[in-house]
Design a protein around this nucleic acid. Structure first.
Lengths: 261, 261
DNA sequence: ACACCTATTGCATAGATCGCGCAAGAGGAG
DNA sequence: CTCCTCTTGCGCGATCTATGCAATAGGTGT
């Protein structure tokens, strides 16, 4: 019975997440309990900050968050989603992976969060958005690098982060980038960022750079990270074949993610 | 008159956006109109999809202030707000402060965020909610401890966090707690948490424990943190004088935060 | 200046929802 | 088996909401 109450609250939360809105009457009918019980559940979930109460029902807070996240991703988010899905499929149970900052890796974090069947994965991240996505994912062990929070990129940099990285290693590292270049590697706004990226990549068995087509061949900024010998570029199908050939010629493995559904 | 109605609706929307939450009573008083009028405004804005109606008020859909909103919905938030305000006034420009995890310290983070006149403050935190609040605050230097993210308390623990703490010191440390006891100190769910708290407190010139009245004298769990010689308990006015005397007798400085406006 | 029209406001009433206290029931621990 | 805790259903008073109606303010055309 106590179990039933917990599962019902979880279910309420899930329904509210998917539909964004739930009424007391509907919930009462769906779970075959009195409206009083539903009300009590809702007040509970509200004080836990997971829902907001409305007149006659409740509204999801997390759903709004995800919506705004999608907005923030905004640009090319279908491509990013496809890339994230491809990346997710590389991860195997029990592995320790590094998640870089950036919107594409945040999409990967969302994939990790929603696939609760993957067990024992430890995700190390320097990105705040990725952390937020995984904060409530019980099936993922989240390790955060410390350091100064860089407001613009919403990720950590600095000596604290570097010190933290130097104490661990990763099965796979999924890197974001402002732009990717076949010869120069990945480009960021500051050298602090590229240095941290280099450290992470040095300590990873497999390095993947997640970058949708628009980021290829650009030189948005002038700080470049030295790439490891072997790495994989993961991009979407709209990428220019000529550009991709430049990567392949340099020994970079290229993966094309296909959007589905 | 028609103009007044439009500007009022805009203003309502603006207020809801910034504070995340607005009550019919407050709005009615603020604009000096009857609750009926406010209700009509709210239904209008709701059908326009700009707001969501709650019981006795409205909630912003653009989740700009998700953190503060979650706080407002939570338990005893008036007391926490008063305590946070008192704590905020202790902080002086240029200081480096430690912000523990927990909802009360998250409220302090909100104070720090909203007072943009305070300059040069460096906030070191192990709490995810505090980080989110300060993520977009350009006037605050945010340093995050790394470590394992503990899902329940939304804060970092573990050796990475401890290693990070051991490399810095603080002018002031603002600690949260699940419960506070005059003899035993502050209580948490696990010894990992208390150990990190001890380390932070050891390296701070001034230690404040932020705990509203309901947390005093309780023993919610069985992991206790050893307190430094001198520390300040910050609580609200509804605290039992007998309990407070127990703290004073042990040399603990006691501060009572008064709720205002 | 005057009349007219529309949007808005305040008030009162009726209906719906909410919060709380109380007693009963359903597991879990010893 | 008994005790204990958490949960549930029910009823009541309180609060909030929705709606109709009359009054008012502001804009408009003559």
């Amino acid at each position: 019975m106590k179990q039933k109450a917990l599962t019902r609250r979880d279910e309420i939360l899930r329904m509210a997440m998917t539909t964004g809105l739930a009424s007391v009457e509907e919930l009462s009918a769906a779970f075959d309990v009195t409206p009083s019980t539903i009300r009590r559940d809702l007040t509970r979930l509200t004080t836990q900050g997971k829902l907001a109460r409305t007149y006659g029902g409740a509204i999801s807070l997390a759903n709004n968050r995800e919506a705004s996240l999608t907005q923030r991703l905004g640009e090319a988010h279908e491509a990013k989603r496809a890339i994230a899905r491809w990346a997710f499929e590389q991860v195997e149970a029990g592995e320790t992976i590094a998640l870089d900052g950036g919107s594409t890796t945040a999409a990967l974090a969302e994939e990790l969060r929603s696939h609760t069947d993957l067990s024992g994965v430890c995700a190390v991240t320097a990105g705040l958005t990725a952390m937020e996505s995984l904060a409530h994912a019980d099936h993922i062990d989240v390790l955060a690098l410390g350091g100064r929070l860089r407001a613009l990129s919403q990720s950590f940099i600095g000596s604290l982060a570097e010190a933290a990285v130097s104490r661990m290693s990763f099965d796979r590292a999924f890197m974001g980038a402002d732009s990717v270049h076949a010869e120069r590697g990945i480009c960021e706004a500051s050298l602090d960022q590229t240095r941290l990226k280099e450290l992470i990549m040095e300590r990873a068995d497999h390095v993947y750079v997640l970058a949708h087509a628009a980021k290829l061949g650009q030189s948005a900024f002038h700080a470049w990270a030295v790439m490891p010998k072997h790495w994989t570029l993961v991009t979407d199908q709209s990428a220019d074949p000529g550009l991709l050939a430049a990567f392949s010629d340099r020994g970079v493995e290229v993966a094309l993610a296909t959007a589905l559904s």
